[in-house]
């Protein structure tokens, strides 16, 4: 007796393998993000109001950021149509430097205060990713 629909069974088997592989494969690739710097809200620095003749000069915020955040170049995973997956090959710190306004000089000029870095800390992590092919069944 001939097997029932042998070509069909073969076809199903042929299709099932990649489908199974696809089921285990996240099908992702990487997208690169360049480094960026973000400046936090300004804090009052050289903030005194000064009068020169009939004009009041207000040296307000904008001189000294409360913090600056540096995010190094990194990657993140995005969906892909390829049978690929991503893997972290390294982590880098997102760094925040906080600033304080130090008044040193009693000048009416803005150099009367200086904006100084007070502390540096790691506030998070981003990753460098690598795209690899998903393992094929039986490989």
């Amino acid at each position: 007796m001939k097997p029932l629909f042998p070509p069909t069974i073969a076809l199903v088997a042929l299709l099932a393998a990649p489908l199974a592989a696809q089921g285990n494969c996240p099908m992702q690739t990487t997208r690169h993000v360049p480094a960026s710097t973000t400046i936090g809200p300004p804090q009052p620095c050289s903030g005194a109001d000064y009068r020169i003749a009939e004009i009041e000069i207000r040296l307000t915020a904008g001189m000294c950021p409360s913090f600056v955040v540096y995010t190094p170049p990194h990657d993140y995973a995005v969906p892909s149509t390829q049978m690929t997956q991503v893997e972290s090959i390294g982590a880098q710190a997102i760094t925040m430097v906080t600033f304080r306004c130090v008044t040193r000089w009693l000048l009416f000029l803005p150099i009367g205060s200086t904006c100084e870095a007070s502390r540096q800390m790691n506030v998070g992590a981003v990753h460098t990713l690598l795209t690899r092919p998903c393992a094929t069944p039986g490989a």
Partner: peptide, 29 residues
């Protein structure tokens, strides 16, 4: 004048610094 004022402040010569600062304001005016 600005730099002189700064030096006076750093030497804790606050009265002199105030005078110097006033001088700078007047000169800018």
């Amino acid at each position: 004048i600005g730099r002189r004022t700064a030096a006076l402040v750093q030497e804790d010569e606050l009265e002199g610094a105030q005078t110097s600062d006033t001088e700078a304001r007047a000169l800018l005016g």
